[in-house]
Design a binder for these strands. Structure first.
Lengths: 181, 181
DNA sequence: TGCGGTTAGTTGAGATTTCTACTACAGTGG
DNA sequence: CCACTGTAGTAGAAATCTCAACTAACCGCA
């Protein structure tokens, strides 16, 4: 049973007498390619989107989530959860977007603490205008560069990573609960 | 011959009578899983690194590159190129790191415009201290979550993406050259 | 009812990143 | 040698993100 098999890897005590399991050469190569490729990819996509439509990637993502929600409306915290953004970050983003007329905020009736964020008609049009060229970007730099099988594998791998992280969060919370009991 | 097959996809004219090639459901799923998983992964890794060693991911990356360079020294622009960071960004990062005693800058002898960035002994020690727990993080949240084959596939895919982007840059430059001739 | 403990959201300060302009030097061609 | 064009690096302002309070409202419970 190694030190890194399961559970709360976030509480990594300074390892004791056991050796570090360094990455193998293959793992190292893959990890670096992932880091590097991702950095460059997101960079290009952000620039092209900005260029073509004047939206930042963050704003675009917000609009996409809202566009898919019933009433084109989502609670701030739901939005933050889906985007994996901090609540604070989302507040700032949404404030800017509201000033730009892309979204509106309204108090939530069922829960007076809550705030509903709704896409405006302007926001919708901006998204509709932006989407085609953004999709072309994603195709040009990612989807069309890979074989369908590769694209699938990429998605599967990162879905597993994402799922493990969310499970990990739940685990940490459970640990905290257990400790504080 | 579609509108997105080859060449300078960065100059995407508003498409005319041809339809947008939207992503298929599978492509969409994969793309989102990638975006989402990546966001969460980098977030966790940055936090854990910060927590365990007080280094930001950016600083860590700088130190890694320097540690692998002869004399633990690299030109600013080489460093920026390897990290896929803007020159400006690197200047700011390095200024902060120099203030913290992690690196030092010295004028470059062969080219008086250049600046050599060298890792200090302190920087080296900080990296050596930080590496084990960072590697554990990467294992815990990425490498050990995937099968070796998946990890390999992830690396291969993103290497292809990265390569295409660099080729794309070269292409844009060539285009600019051709246009300005 | 009223007291904690928790959750939703905001705010402002500080840190980082981006954008743009600027200086200095290198390399080329007349 | 000199102008011209391109490259290396920096600097400051503006935009964005993170972090640590803070307010308000919900929820369980005595």
């Amino acid at each position: 049973m190694s030190t890194t098999t399961t559970g709360s890897a976030t509480t990594r005590a300074p390892r004791e007498h056991d050796e570090v399991r360094w990455l193998t050469a293959d793992e190292q190569r893959a990890w670096r390619a992932y880091r590097d490729g991702t950095a460059r990819l997101l960079d290009v996509l952000a620039h092209e989107l900005e260029q073509d439509s004047g939206l930042s990637l963050g704003e675009y993502e917000v609009l996409v989530r809202l566009s898919e929600a019933p009433q084109r409306t989502l609670r701030m915290s739901e939005l933050a959860g889906e985007l994996a953004h901090s609540r604070s970050r989302l507040t700032h983003t949404v404030r800017r977007m509201e000033a730009a007329g892309l979204v509106e905020r309204a108090p939530c009736l069922e829960d007076a603490r809550g705030v509903n964020c709704t896409m405006t008609e302007t926001g919708w049009r901006r998204l509709v205008d932006a989407a085609p060229s953004h999709v072309e970007s994603v195709r040009a730099h990612l989807v069309d560069v890979l074989s369908p099988a590769q694209m699938q594998a990429l998605g599967d791998a990162m879905a597993a990573v994402g799922a493990a992280l969310q499970a990990g969060c739940a685990q940490v919370e459970a640990d905290a609960e257990a400790a504080g009991r």
